[in-house]
């Protein structure tokens, strides 16, 4: 059994600062995740949780701080030089994470299978047969095997989101990023997606989820992080964070969220 202290954390966020023009949205965020961790990030709108998530795969730039995946500096070279990496390097780094979006963002001109295989074929440059096999395997895993040849326009929201999950996870990322993935779904469809996520978590997938679904966060996470005004205010095991909130604002937030 490896010594956890010597193991490099799969995701390390240190001193993350980000500004949107004049408004500082992230004011120094530190977060560490080990392989297999499932971390939920909760907080009110504007707390910076989605921005932080989007910095991890460099969909947003950040001015200060560092993000490391498996020890590798993401997006920028290490301080003090701190240069933005080449676009081709950043593209490669992005394939180390998988992101599932609130609006699914499936490619409408490709079938479910096409959506999942695109990354495998063009980024990982796998041969077609292998890519299709992997894609089929993951589509099966999310329960969409029967509809592999359907187009996003023929799928319900829940089905689309499940394909989106397959698309992200088929790339074998080190960390999966979920950005409020059920917020855009009709209530009846939310469950099918949450079930899939729970089963992936049970299989040991490393996940960072931004979510409003408190009950779900409580059930699936190993750790819960509460963000407020650009900083992490409190974090800990679900029982501690949800049952025994230390900070006043967290208590307030939970009360409003009716947990």
């Amino acid at each position: 059994m490896s010594n956890p202290v010597l193991e490099i954390p799969v995701l390390e966020i240190l001193g993350l600062h980000k500004k949107f023009t004049d408004i500082e949205v992230l004011k120094g965020v530190d977060l560490t995740m080990a392989t297999g961790d499932v971390v939920s990030v909760i907080g009110s709108s504007g707390s910076g949780k989605t921005t932080m998530l989007r910095c991890v795969n460099l969909l947003e730039d950040f001015e200060q701080g560092s993000i490391r995946i498996d020890g590798e500096e993401i997006g920028y070279t290490a301080a003090p030089q701190r240069r933005r990496r080449k676009e081709s390097e950043i593209a490669r780094q992005r394939s180390m994470t998988g992101m599932v979006f609130q609006q699914f963002n499936l490619f409408p001109h490709m079938s479910a299978l096409g959506n999942v295989t695109l990354g495998l074929l063009k980024v990982k440059k796998l041969p077609k047969a292998e890519a299709t096999a992997i894609a089929d395997q993951w589509l099966e895993r999310v329960g969409m095997a029967e509809r592999r040849n359907h187009y996003p326009g023929q799928l319900s929201g829940g089905q689309q989101q499940r394909v989106a999950i397959a698309r992200a996870i088929a790339m074998n990322p080190k960390v999966m990023l979920f950005d409020e993935v059920t917020s855009a779904l009709d209530p009846e469809l939310v469950n099918e997606v949450l079930t899939v996520i729970k089963s992936l978590a049970a299989d040991g997938m490393t996940m960072l989820l931004v979510t409003h679904e408190m009950k779900f966060a409580y059930e699936v996470s190993r750790r819960v992080v509460f963000m407020n005004q650009g900083k992490i205010e409190e974090q800990g095991a679900p029982e501690d964070v949800f049952r025994n909130p230390q900070s006043k604002r967290l208590a307030e937030f939970l009360k409003n969220a009716k947990f």
């Binding site: 969909l59 676009e87 992005r94 992101m99 979006f101 609006q103 980024v123």
Partner: peptide, 17 residues
């Protein structure tokens, strides 16, 4: 929609791709 470019970026596609 912007989300298309973002989803493409997220799976690691370069701009040309």
């Amino acid at each position: 929609p912007k989300g298309q470019t973002e989803a493409a970026k997220a799976i690691g596609l370069t701009f040309r791709q």
